[in-house]
Design a protein around this nucleic acid. Structure first.
Lengths: 218, 218
DNA sequence: AAACCACTGTTGCATATGCAACGCAAAGGG
DNA sequence: CCCTTTGCGTTGCATATGCAACAGTGGTTT
């Protein structure tokens, strides 16, 4: 349990509830489950009555379409959560499958227990709900930003959009990006070599300067 | 005020609070403001301490990047809201600009008043927060879905992803789409004629069938 | 030192896409 | 009835992109 507490303290959903974490967990009545590598944690079509917290191991969230194309939406490490959007939205059937990439333990927190302030109206419940709101809102903004990048039709536009977003975030025209080329290409959903080609071109044209992951807008 | 009540009843944030709407509005202390056509309602960089509810007129949410590329994120009609994500996330500076496309009236609801249950702890506050959660969660899912479409590299993949999502949603391989070709092209962020070309090809190949906005997966 | 490996850039080539222009059909307005 | 508008498909063409293959570099292992 002690080991779990260390992980739980880092869960954003519990931000600012540090001292009374254990009390709150009892109040929420979370269930802990273990899964073997490759085991399915949540299957497409199943209900999502709870938020999942990864306590140990690695978890993959994947989605399949009608033609069987499987795409990995995210990979989660300990202290990250999944299912919060589906649970909060009251979706009846999960559109995604969650599976254990390694042996994992997950804690499930019933969304009802999270949303409805408990009868003894403990002070932390409001904090918890506020955290959930903030998590959803932040994810919203991240998704919107990514959406805007992906809306661009050419790689050049995607790159420039991404770089100017980063510059804006850092408040500086020179900045580092947290991606390798490969990762950046994945993030922008384009081919790596094509990305390299465009970056070279932009540098030759004098639009940007870069070495490794340090970039500068001109 | 009566005219506004009709609009306010349709606001999803107030879902299920119909009878006591007026009481709740007083409790929330919303401010009403009017704007002329073209006037700026919220400027990039300003704080977003409140959720905006469009009472009349049309509102545009736009975003500009470093190079001045202006893109319209959404257009809102009466009873729709804006700023909920930024306000909920506690973002200090709005990354978007909101402007009045026509003469408009907007009601602002301070996010603090929404999140923090009032001293007299009225019953509807929890309902309100739950609605806000649901709105953010739903938007999250919509954005994720769109993201997945836009992640595909070719128009063909985007189209098939979109169509199979629709089929799944309707639970039927034959269905209608809510878009004209132009709108679908905009939604998928591709060229209209290129989209037409791909649709024709898919039909010739026998992958799909369609006439107008009625589609069928084969 | 030699042999790997991860990361990045480059390039040739087939294909996909954007763009502009045109034709056609249906709907609506004068 | 004619004219305009709108929606949709088609096509030619220049360009962008994915894909595969190769090269160079720096770091790590054997």
């Amino acid at each position: 349990m002690n080991k779990n507490l260390d992980v739980l303290r880092k869960v954003k959903l519990f931000d600012g509830i540090d001292e009374n974490l254990e009390a709150m967990l009892q109040c929420l009545g979370g269930e802990e489950k273990t899964y073997d590598r490759g085991e399915i944690i949540l299957l497409t079509g199943q209900p999502v009555p709870a938020v999942g917290v990864v306590l140990s191991g690695e978890v993959q969230v994947i989605q399949e379409d009608y033609y069987g194309n499987r795409s990995i939406l995210t990979e989660l490490s300990p202290s990250h959560i999944f299912g919060e959007a589906f649970a909060s939205a009251g979706i009846k059937e999960s559109p995604v499958t969650v599976l254990a990439k390694t042996n994992t333990t997950v804690m499930f927190l019933g969304i009802e227990r999270i949303i409805n302030t408990c009868p003894n109206s403990c002070i932390f419940h409001n904090h918890l709900i506020e955290n959930l709101l903030k998590i959803l809102a932040r994810k919203n903004i991240l998704l919107s930003n990514k959406n805007q990048l992906l809306s661009r039709r050419t790689i050049q536009d995607k790159v420039l959009s991404y770089l100017s977003l980063q510059a804006e975030k850092k408040g500086n025209l020179a900045f580092e990006i947290p991606f390798t080329r490969n990762e950046l290409a994945d993030f922008l959903c384009v081919d790596r070599s094509a990305l390299s080609r465009v970056l070279s071109k932009l540098q030759k044209e004098g639009t940007i300067e870069y070495t490794n992951n340090h970039f500068k807008l001109l």
